[in-house]
Design a protein around this nucleic acid. Sequence first.
RNA 1: GGGUCCGUGGUCUAGUUGGUUAUGACGUGGCCUUUACAAGGCCGAGGCCGGUGGUUCGAAUCCGCCCGGACCCA
Length: 903
Amino acid sequence: MSDTQDPPTEESPTDQSESIDGEYDPSEIEPKWQDHWVAEDTYAYDGDADTRFTIDTPPPTVSGNLHMGHLYQFTLQDFVARYHRMADDTVYFPFGYDDNGIASERLTERELDIRHQDFERREFQEKCREVCTRYEDEFTEDVQSLAISVDWDNTYKTIAPEVQRVSQLSFLDLYEQGREYRQRAPTIWCPDCETAISQVEQEDEDKSTKFNDIAFDLVEDGDGPVEDETFTISTTRPELLPACVSVFVHPDDDANQHLVGGTARVPLFGQEVPIIADERVDMETGSGLVMCCTFGDQNDIEWYQAHDLDLRLAIDESATMTEVAGDYEGMSTTQARAAIIEDLDVEGYLLESRDHEHTVQVHERCGVEVEYLVTEQWYIKLLDKKDEYLQAGRDMEWFPEKMYSRYQHWIEGLEWDWCISRQRDSGIPIPVWYCDECGEPILADPEQLPADPLSDDPPVDGCPDCGHDTFTPEEDVFDTWATSSLTPLVNAGWDWHADADAAEPNSITDGTFEMEMPELYPFDLRPQGHDIISFWLFHTVVKCYEHTDEVPFENVMVNGMVLDENREAMSKSKGNVIPPSEVLENFPVDAARYWAAGTSIGDDFPYKEGDLEAGERLLQKLWNASRLVDQLTPAHDAVGDVDEADLSAVDRWLLAELDATIDSVTAKFEDYAFSKARNELRSFFWNTFCDDYLEIAKQRLSDGGDPSTEYTLLTAHRTFLKLFAPFLPHITEELWSRVYGEDESVHTTDWPVAGGYEADLEAGETAMEVVSALRRYKTENGLPLNADLEHVEVYGHVEGFAAAIAEAMHVDRLETFEDAPDITTEVSDIDLDYSIVGPEFGSDVGALDSAIEAGDYEIDGDTLVVAGGEFELDAEMFAVEESRTYSGEGEMTETENAVVVVR
RNA sequence: GGGUCCGUGGUCUAGUUGGUUAUGACGUGGCCUUUACAAGGCCGAGGCCGGUGGUUCGAAUCCGCCCGGACCCA
């Protein structure tokens, strides 16, 4: 394990290393390694390892194109995978293709010029699989070209029969547990796709419409029958008049309170409806009186349930008016709206019709306004277990932590159970038949799954309830999450096996669920965007929790959305979409990865060409620094281990600083804090290693070998390649291979651990300040940086570093003194430590400050006496700031911890 | 309409038990060809931390309100 600080092995294989020269050329090197990693199965999961890290990712829809969101998300996942592969021996990082949705269905129809209705579901799905395979291959290539270290031996497709079996088993298990039911109830319905949809499949759309004021005749008010009185209802949907079942008044609406308890007659259609008080009325809109129809919106459904109202279904599944609509039967809702408005006008009921902007709910797939219909659907219970699902959310660790609140609020706001059936022609069949006599549902046998009731026979000859022998197959299919909410179980090989002693296993209870690889579950990490927490993640947690009694993930890592350079979401309609292919034409993949590492997870962040350029420069710097290290250690295979005691002070200092960086960067990777890891690593490498240490090492090795320096250079260099490997996989692999000529990929080596070097960090820091001061001196005096300096005096603690300073800065004669120089000093200011002074002096701090500012103080030994003794401060409360004036020969500069005189 | 998150130099960003002198990068100005790198090195300019009121000896940080933005939900 502790290979970080281990030296290059003395007996390393024959030196196959090539020299490093010229510029780094990623266009040639990156594809070379991508092909190599795939061909060599570099990222194959080694199931025998003692430690492992497992990742379950939401599978992308493969029929779409790769976009920047994919690049960003996959890259973040890959940072985790590569880090843990090195730190924890092995990683399970599979890849899934979501090819089970409407997108794939439409794609197949388009590609093959066929209609799915012309085929059996099973046959059609076979064709989908064929078509999707081509797109999957293309997607695979795209992902591989981003250097995502997926184990390509572990992939799954949601349309595969074995995955469909898992979905159907899940349905059987939940039914057995009493978590599912079939019910005729109000449903959100897309009249274009003619299927139920869930809340999350609808989206807002602003529309212009007409607000119509319609007169209703009052039949009775709260006190009894009345004559010739009317009131006004404002509505955007007059076609729902035939479905009107009541009128509502707000309990605080004094002007209309007398109507409560009465009845009204609906114009044109004549039904008499009750007038009821309910505080859900929006008094601000229209007349304050509102009609309730079955159903115009979700509020109508609440009223229907709360007040036990009539059901008048005026619109059918294709948005056509039913017989309830009388003369308007057979019209579309749009036609009916126009006709009813015209007739209302003719009959004198239409008081006013004015323009109105409002928000409607549309189906996200087709953009058609949804209806609320009463239909028979399958549901998974959610509402009775909100508390358990909240606890499940708390059982997972969220990165960033604040994202848990999205999960929490989603659950707290749930009002409906989860409708899982869809009236689509293709999809995963719900494996159920119904008895023609008594309606009893007959579930498929677990052994016969995957099953399609439209093609397969039910598992019984007669109804177990009534004995009848004819059955009707369920035609509906599952919603889109049927497979995608089960990916942890699919990855772990979850399946049902009949008990050995079960003679005729025909129920879930005649067998058990087992995982082929139980060690994977629960998964260590679930990465995904914050936009899908409320449904995809939530659905996955619910199902896996119900099947296994455990949450499926230890950690959830949430990524933000990629914005354009102006911080706006990329969208086709705005025309600001940047395809990854365009980015990668201009920049190396490693540079794109550097950019992706540049923000805190969870935050949305903009595409920034500047960051890609910075990444490119880092690659070049890494390349050049490696070249120098290579040149300085011409016989690096022969460089042996050096005892810590034999290391020079400057080398020990560098290795101790490297230790600190290893620890810190490792901690950042553990916390998914990629941006901090990246920045810290970059600045240590660039500023400390390149700018400070390499300049010193260069001089120290100019007159020939120095084992201590060579050892340190190589140890640090090897460590940098490893620490950078998760971020910059191509260049680190290329350098690893060129410089060290080893067969093993850098990506499967062990992650560095600190070597435990002890050094005088203070002296090192002061020495670097001195070097910096001498550089500044040269710059300010117009001298080249390699100009010789005759005589320099250093006052400060730089023990062990004098030679290094002198060599690096070309100083002929360097004298060092531990004590301050004997030059004029005077107190220029007093710095107070307010964290002590504040609590101690409270409201007197102001007076204390102004006394010091006025110079009304004296220093008495360790004590600061202020305002003639009014305040006395201990040594720990203040620091004296001195200014020095130097009148001797040469020029003096001060640093934080030293004084430097150039003579 | 409700909720969540966010607002820090021109741009992106660090900065949570409150401590007075706010981090880094990009960009920008000046100087320098140092035997790895001018895609480099050194030095500098640039911020009343969205606004406002409050709590406190002390606020980028805590609280109220307002403005602006993003997302989720109605």
